[in-house]
Simulated assay, not measured.
Amino acid sequence: MKNEKGFTLIEMLIVLLVISVLMILIVPNLADKNEHVQSEGCEALVKLAESQVETYRIDHGTAPTTIAQLEDGYLTESTCQGGKRQLAISSAGEVSLIDVPSS
Rank of each mutant, 00 (worst) to 15 (best):
I14L: 15
T8H: 11
K47P: 04
I98M: 09
A63V: 11
T62A: 13
Y56K: 04
Q81R: 15
G6A: 03
R57Q: 13
E50Y: 07
F7G: 01
V27M: 14
G61C: 08
S91I: 14
L45G: 01
M23T: 06
L45P: 03
P64H: 02
E94R: 14
D72S: 12
G61K: 06
P64Y: 01
V53K: 04
G61P: 01
Y56W: 05
P101D: 07
S103Y: 07
Y74M: 05
T65G: 14
E77A: 09
L97G: 02
L25I: 13
K33C: 07
I58A: 12
T79Q: 13
V53M: 05
L48H: 03
Y74S: 06
T65F: 09
K33V: 07
E50G: 01
A68K: 13
E50M: 12
T66P: 03
N34D: 06
I26L: 09
A92G: 09
K33A: 15
H60V: 00
A63F: 04
I67D: 02
L25G: 11
N34L: 15
C42F: 04
I98Y: 07
S91Q: 15
V15T: 07
L13K: 07
A92Q: 14
S90L: 12
I89K: 00
Y74D: 02
C80K: 00
V18A: 14
L25T: 13
S39N: 13
N3G: 13
G6C: 06
P64L: 01
I14D: 04
L22A: 13
L13N: 05
V18W: 03
M12L: 15
I19S: 04
L13H: 02
S102R: 09
L16A: 14
M1P: 05
N34M: 14
K47F: 00
L17H: 00
T65Q: 12
V53D: 04
G82L: 10
A68E: 15
G73V: 08
E50T: 06
D32I: 09
N29F: 02
V95F: 03
V27L: 15
P64S: 07
V95M: 05
Q81P: 04
V21S: 11
E4S: 14
Q81N: 13
N3S: 14
R57K: 15
S20V: 12
E71D: 04
G82E: 12
